[in-house]
């Protein structure tokens, strides 16, 4: 589904991602783990083209998507959650989610001259998502008035609603309560059962190893090792990378 080939990114001498290669198979949850600064988020940024790679190629569904504009990567079918909150703070929760559904809202003349199209079916989709997240009561709240955990959930909802065939989630459960964590785990497993493919960055080992089919360990910008959660759990190299010497 996704294939990374020898990708590198240098930030003024810091090799954030260094000759990194791996594949993600369809209908799996693949976890990308590794110590702080290993280059996980940078890798996400390279895939979604938020930053441009120095060398290497990225293929999605056999198509070369290396360094396309971010909106083209998105429209190729990749939906992504950032590590840091990126909701539209001054819009309501509902509007935040509606924006993700399709692009009729970008058509200027249509929006100017046509009677604002009834968005009932879209609103239904949004309400269904809010229901699944247990966030119905926040529908008309401004995003900036939400708590951190609520923001994370809404952002996750927005990422899932954005049409895609591939989900990339950067630390979806960092800093959320244990109950919420279980809820998100269930949502992700449910999505996989519906046929979705998910690439996940997460520090919480219990969470990650609990839901992942495959684990890729990143250290200093390259793949250290990959395998099943079981293999990774007992691997000495992984422990060393995490704990230092």
């Amino acid at each position: 589904m996704l294939e990374i080939k020898k990708i590198s990114k240098d930030f003024g001498g810091v090799k954030a991602v260094n000759n990194c290669s791996f594949k993600v198979e369809p209908n799996t949850i693949t976890a990308l783990i590794g110590p702080n600064g290993a280059g996980k988020s940078t890798l996400f940024n390279l895939i979604s083209s938020v930053i441009k790679s120095d060398t290497g190629k990225i293929f999605f569904d056999k198509k070369d998507i290396t360094n396309l504009p971010p909106e083209k990567v998105s429209n190729a079918g990749i939906s992504r959650l950032f590590q840091k909150a990126r909701l539209f703070e001054n819009l309501t929760v509902e509007d935040n989610l509606l924006l993700a559904l399709d692009h009729t809202d970008t058509k200027f003349w249509f929006n100017l001259f046509c009677k604002t199209p009834k968005q009932t079916d879209k609103i239904q989709k949004v309400e269904k998502m809010l229901d699944m997240l247990g966030m119905k009561k926040t529908k008309n709240m401004f995003a900036k008035d939400l708590s951190y955990g609520q923001k994370r959930l809404i952002e996750l909802g927005r990422t899932i609603l954005n049409p895609h065939s591939f989900l990339m989630l950067d630390e979806p459960v960092a800093g959320v309560t244990p109950e919420l964590r279980d809820k998100i785990a269930n949502i992700l497993i449910e999505l996989k059962n519906q046929g979705e493919t998910i690439l996940l960055i997460e520090h919480d080992m219990n969470f990650t190893l609990g839901i992942a089919d495959r684990v890729i360990v990143l250290d200093q910008g390259s793949v250290l090792i990959e395998g099943t959660p079981k293999q990774i759990k007992n691997n000495k190299q992984v422990l060393k990378a995490y704990l230092g010497e």
Partner: peptide
């Protein structure tokens, strides 16, 4: 950037 990531 978040708008672009939504494909717009």
């Amino acid at each position: 950037l978040a708008v672009r990531i939504l494909g717009k």
